[in-house]
Write a protein that binds this DNA or RNA. Structure first.
Lengths: 195, 195
DNA sequence: TTTGCAACTTGACACAGTGTCAATTGACAC
DNA sequence: GTGTCAATTGACACTGTGTCAAGTTGCAAA
């Protein structure tokens, strides 16, 4: 029965999100997720062909739960390019901490798993589109600093806002999330906005 | 005999560097290194207690081969803070590509191996010292942009210059090494130098 | 009531790569 | 000769993923 089916699938995804959050994404095995969902390990493979696929589905599940699209609205509604850039960074800086454990698991799986690497690349490509939109809004206002092309500026902003960088600043350097947002806005503004 | 001992050790390290360079650091197993050094897999464990230790020794071996200290001189000899910053980025941008395969292997081992994670952290801490020196030279000239403290600016520069960022810009975005240097200098200058 | 399908369970197994252990060989030194 | 040290050979434990085959349960349509 397909409703039963969907329920089990959802239960797996919920369990996956929960475990990732608990353990910071590290050391969550297929068997752990199965156990947390009150299901056999093999049943998980009935719904997801591989760990990578499950991980990817987990991030999408989380995006839906966190209402990703709704959160992007302030940035999209901005009236100037500089404002759009600042709001995008604010959105992202508030979003990362919520997806971090799951993202981290996907990030770790990358090294061994080609499918996970592809899944991650796709996710980051979507994030890149947001960067490009902000940079292009800036360029449309004539406010992109003259040494940049839109393409290179997008590359650089995208890199600046990577999950790894967030991780390093907040985990290793101990910055609070609010400071991450503030300083990233500062760097982006000074770097990309013509003065 | 200890000279024989040292020879074998060196042979292992040379083989390790060679294989890493060939395969980009990925998928280099203990057995491969042993074979390349004309030695049994177990003999490697006679010289290095674990893969992580071997990897770390490989990076140090490479630093010596590449004359790390000598390469740092231009940056240390700079007369202004802004110059020191630019020269440090230039050094680093030229250095990363040479150590990248080995660094990548150490980076990958991190996820499974606590010892590798510690080794990497130590290496990056050393790099951080270079960042701090550049930022402090800038501050000593009174040229550090007023919103920054030396500590936060160091955090940010250190993050900006991470191997992951270099990887993303040159591998994923396809920037040539020369462009990496140029644009990183641009970002750092606009971000940290008072105008 | 029977038949049949679909979701799920159980248990066993292959595979990769790391690290460990024990027994053995070969060379050189004293 | 005897001791010692480097190195070899081969077997094995361990971990986690993914696969396979055979059996169970429950619901549904005939």
């Amino acid at each position: 029965m397909s409703s039963h089916d969907a329920n089990t699938r959802t239960r797996i995804l919920d369990a996956s999100v929960r475990l990732m959050a608990d353990r910071g994404g590290k050391g969550v095995r297929m068997g752990d997720i199965a156990k947390a969902a009150n299901i056999s390990r093999q049943a998980v493979y009935l719904h997801f062909t591989s760990r990578a696929e499950l991980l990817e589905a987990t991030t999408r599940h989380l995006d839906r739960q966190l209402n990703l699209e709704h959160r992007l609205e302030p940035s999209r509604a901005a009236t100037t390019g500089a404002d759009r850039l600042a709001r995008y960074i604010e959105f992202w800086g508030n979003y990362i901490p919520e997806i971090y454990p799951v993202a981290k698991a996907l990030l770790l799986a990358q090294d061994t798993d080609e499918a996970a690497a592809t899944a991650w690349r796709e996710r980051m490509q979507a994030m890149r589109d947001g960067c490009r939109a902000a940079i292009e809004a800036l360029a449309a206002d004539g406010d992109l600093a003259p040494q940049w092309t839109a393409e290179r500026a997008t590359d650089m902003l995208w890199t600046l806002l990577s999950v790894r960088n967030w991780e390093q600043l907040t985990q290793d350097c101990g910055w609070p999330a609010s400071q991450y947002i503030q300083w990233m806005q500062t760097v982006a503004h000074r770097t990309f906005v013509a003065n």
